[in-house]
Amino acid sequence: MKSVSRREFIAAATAAAAGSLLGGCKSRSEAPAAAARAPSPANGAAVVEKSRVILIRDRSAVLADGRANPEVIARMIDEAACALTGEKKPLDAFGALIRPDDTVGIKSNVWKFLPTPPEVEQALRARILELGIPEDRIGIDDRGVLQNPVFQKATALINTRPMRTHHWSGVGSLIKNYIMFVPDPYNHHADACADLAAIWNLPHVKGKTRLNVLAMLTPLFHSVGPHGFNPEYLWNYGGLIVSRDPVAADTVGLSIIEAKRKAFFGDNRPLNPPAKHIQLADTRHRLGTADPARIALVTLGDDKDILL
């Protein structure tokens, strides 16, 4: 996959901007919320649909001991949801994503070295509860999603995990996070997990994902050792990437990982293997977009060392 510069993303966002500004969300580079899936114009002219991606950063979200700060995380998720939907109030933003009659599965990730921060899970769950959805229609799970009654009945999914480098797929991505929706994950590893996006087309998954939250709080930018983990290769980026489009969110996250590798190693050290499943999720499976020209990136919060 080609590395993507911030300039390319911002150019896309600028091109998409048509004058509407977000209410209630501090933003630096902005594009209208409707640009995420712009309707065709009345004259039938082709338009380039853009996927809206919110990158929000606050390095105080990571405490000195490595845990996440729940208050900061909750605020970041609220601001990102507002920026994504164009709503002024967080509850309205979540209301634009989730209906009161939904049964909601929050697909998490329990990898022991770098799991989805519980603070992210709980911030999402709290807002869903506030929408009036009862506890028994909200589930948080990873390995057990196929057996979990809430996920079996889910009408809406929220997908959240940290990004990390991965021995076989290049990176552990939002796209890859759905591998637990098949009973035979090992059969989806061919060609460096090239076709992971096919899982998103399975009947019990297709069309249900309303929100993707890629945790970039302390991403892992290099894998060594039998478990692919060494704390030497974590850093406090303090970010969350939020989008309806998992491919676009992964594309932004991957760019940050690649930029960090270049900064750390001092040369172009490609991911091994390349994270081609993200590109192929676009070009082969049409799950979303990996093309920077079709990603409207909005950045919020801390700009230092943004790596884009």
Binding site: H166, H167, W168, Y186, G228
Partner: peptide, 12 residues
Amino acid sequence: LFEHIDGHAELF
């Protein structure tokens, strides 16, 4: 091996 090495057994 997958039970012990989550997601990285393929390397071995």
